[in-house]
Amino acid sequence: MKNHFFLAIPLPGSWKEEFSFYIQKINSKFPFARWVHPDDLHITLAFLGSVDEDQKEKLKVLLRKVAKEHATFPLSFSELGTFGNQHSPRIFWYGTEESYALHELRKDVYQACEKVGFQLDTRPFHPHITLARKWVGPGSISRDTLPEYSTIKNTFNVRSIILYETHINKIPKYEAKAEFPLIGE
């Protein structure tokens, strides 16, 4: 089975640590089957799936160009949310504030991926950090209580794009394979 790849914005180490403490505080209140390892926290820009070497090398060239067209920019955290059925959500996430710079970066990353032949997700972009997967709790998650747990409101600077490879049987499961620094880094 081939490993899958994706492009993402990494969280700075200090924010991975902050989210690690945060997850420890809230995980007993939100019963999900799998919580994400702090080293795997990121904001996905594009899921690629399987990638052959030729595609990967062509994509790296294009992503270097994309990175050189975007300056570093601040990004703020906003609130908790879920994807999927309210009674059994599949993804528990922490979102980001609206950011024109982030949407423009993602648009350019998508265009680079499409030039290399990737078929990408067409759903609207909803930037977030996945914290946990697969609700196993009794009852359903109350979205009304999420705001009281949405306590991380700080900002970090987006400095690069990372090409990650997924290793299903490892923890942490995401390995950085290439980094593309934005202007200013």
Rank of each mutant, 00 (worst) to 15 (best):
D108G: 06
P181A: 01
E179T: 03
Y149E: 08
L63I: 12
F30T: 15
D144A: 01
Y149C: 07
Y149P: 01
F125A: 06
V36E: 14
H128Y: 00
L80S: 04
H87S: 05
V158I: 11
W135V: 03
P181I: 08
T96R: 14
E114T: 13
F73K: 00
V116Q: 08
S140L: 12
F30L: 09
P89T: 04
T130H: 05
K65Q: 05
L80D: 05
Y22I: 15
N157Q: 12
E97W: 07
C113I: 09
H70A: 00
V109R: 06
G139H: 07
N169H: 07
E185R: 09
Y94I: 04
R106V: 09
L59V: 15
V116M: 11
F118Q: 02
E97F: 06
D108Q: 01
S88V: 12
T145K: 12
N85D: 15
F19E: 15
I141Y: 02
E97D: 07
S88T: 02
D40S: 09
E185I: 11
E69T: 13
G117C: 01
E69V: 04
L163H: 04
A112G: 10
F77T: 00
K65W: 13
L7I: 09
F5C: 05
L163G: 05
V136K: 04
T122A: 08
K16A: 06
I168E: 14
I23E: 14
H37W: 01
K68W: 11
H126V: 08
R64H: 10
Q111W: 11
S160N: 08
P31D: 13
S142H: 02
E114L: 08
L41F: 00
L146C: 01
D52Y: 06
A8V: 03
K16E: 10
V158N: 08
T166L: 06
I183T: 04
S50Q: 13
H42K: 12
A178M: 12
R143Y: 02
E179A: 03
E79L: 10
K177M: 10
H103S: 11
G139D: 03
K65D: 01
I43C: 05
K134T: 14
S160Q: 11
Q111V: 14
L45Y: 02
F83K: 08
T166S: 02
Q111R: 08
P31L: 11
S76W: 03
N3E: 02
P89R: 01
K60L: 12
V61G: 12
Y110A: 12
R123P: 04
Y174C: 09
Q111S: 09
R159Y: 10
D144K: 00
G95R: 06
T155D: 01
N157M: 14
R133Y: 02
T155P: 01
V109M: 05
